[in-house]
Design a protein around this nucleic acid. Structure first.
Lengths: 296, 296
DNA sequence: GTGAAAGCGCTAACAC
DNA sequence: GTGTTAGCGCTTTCAC
């Protein structure tokens, strides 16, 4: 042992992993790293892993189901001891979720599919969307639009449902034209949102993801509409400086760090058999922060 | 081979790595993942790696030299085939850089130490800081403050030098009180910046990192100073929506994605011996975007 | 071409 | 305790 220290001996991790049949590595599969929510969640995951002396492999799907499938399948080799995943919104088969789950401990975080069982750490998407919509109603909005996203995922479905139920319970119309779909972060999105605002003239908008809310600022500038006078806006977002926008943006702030932390912590409990429920959804509360963009 | 396919055979990566003495994995060591610049760079790196069928291990140092040293040392085991690193600002010895570099291909990106040799992908920090300062002078500023960061790194030193030289060449004073040091993202930072503004009354500020610029917005609010009338502000930043801030923030935008892409691409060239210069600095140009926060 | 065998560096098991 | 050994699953070499 003295000799080892003196020679700066570092054991070969592959030999060790091969022999012990474990990798001391976990995989994190996310749509994008360059996103406030995911980079914060990854930060938390990485910290938990480091404390346990585990390594973290990062994979980005860019929302592609094919890429997701190929990553997941490659993990079947035993390269990692566990998987944390926030699934892609473009779905291309789902068999691999089950396949991986049978072999390796796995935790879904933030996003999930209703028809896939598993341990899931999510936020209260339905309540958040409902409450945010109610907040718009309370601020005086009558024609509330919804910028939809993640529609293939439970996450997106619940947000939409919360919006719709809130409208219904306030006896507000919920016509199809008020819901903008299929406009995830590609370029046409910006003009689509602009067209939506100028044609439908909503006086309130709930955006289901941050990437669709910021284009509203640009659209309103171009259309010479004033936020919040002409249009009130609230969005799911983890922008840390929403308060500095012009006007300050009301947000539904998801506890990104806590989700990552909780998901990773549970994964490690699964490793050490201190976790027994293979099919549970834990929901953390999001935080609605009311700012000037929804002021009446 | 047919059989293999039919049974969904996935080769054991550890056995393979052990035998072939290579891991098909690269390490990325960054201060923080949750940072616009680094998450974009990581995004690029991950894409290059994926195209080459490589895996990416992520490590965060949280600016700690000790953590950095322990990660780097552990890489000596052969766990990864190459390293991309943006060093921590708190330095605790530097021997390990040389040690790792002797054994594994390694590329510095964005940040580096002047006294460590190696392949380095940086931006034109000196020019950017000089030009940004000149821009403040051109906008009429006479008392220009500098929010310093990364002072142990070449990156920070060059930015400071660019600021100082620009002042000198414009015959403006460059007294010590105008440079705020040691205020990296901890909480006291905000009050320190506020005190600085209220005591020194600068009419212009160049911030060397985004994390120090946004507190200026809050400080000005509290001090009831108007940006840009009372104080003009420009900062190094990769905030994608600087334009939406109130007022829109002038930024020195570093090509984060390109830096990550270039660094990873060169690392792979080193793997295949298509890269011969072990000691070169490649500098990419940053882009100064002038917005309302520096309007005269 | 086809097949057998050695060995990468560890660790766990077993014999002493 | 202390020392020896087998074998994790590949890949490469070498013999045919």
């Amino acid at each position: 042992m003295e000799m080892a220290k003196k020679l700066n001996y570092e054991p070969n991790p592959f030999a060790s992993s091969l022999r012990r049949q474990q990798s001391k590595t976990i995989a994190v599969i996310v749509p994008e790293v360059a996103n406030n929510f995911f980079s914060l969640a990854i930060k938390a995951i990485e910290e938990v892993a480091r404390a346990k002396d585990y390594h973290v492999l990062i994979y980005q799907t860019h929302e592609s189901g094919e890429i997701e499938a190929s990553f997941m399948t490659s993990l079947l080799s035993g390269r990692v001891d566990g998987v944390l995943i926030s699934p892609a919104s473009h779905v291309a088969g789902k068999e691999y979720f089950q396949k991986v789950r049978e072999k390796i401990p796995m935790v879904f975080f933030d996003r999930d599919h209703a028809d896939i069982e598993g341990v899931k750490i999510t936020t209260d998407d339905y309540d958040s969307a409902y409450n945010a919509t109610q907040h718009l109603v309370d601020a005086g909005c009558k024609t509330i639009g919804y910028l939809a996203a993640l529609e293939t995922l439970t996450t997106g479905k619940k947000r939409l449902q919360g919006y719709q139920d809130a409208l219904k319970n306030n006896n507000l119309m919920c016509r199809a034209g008020l819901i903008v779909s299929n406009c995830e972060n590609n370029e046409p999105c910006r003009s689509k949102i602009k067209d939506f605002i100028s044609e439908q003239r909503p006086d309130g908008i709930l955006s289901s993801i941050e990437e669709l809310a910021l284009p509203c600022y640009y659209a309103c500038k171009e259309l010479q509409l004033n936020i919040p006078k002409d249009l009130k806006l609230i969005t799911f977002s983890n922008l840390s400086h929403a308060e500095l926008l012009n006007p300050p943006l009301s947000t539904i702030n998801q506890p990104a760090f806590e989700i990552g932390d909780e998901a990773a912590t549970i994964l490690f409990k699964m490793f050490s058999k201190r976790w027994y429920d293979p099919n549970i959804t834990i929901s953390l509360k999001s935080n609605i922060i009311k700012r000037e963009s929804t002021q009446s």
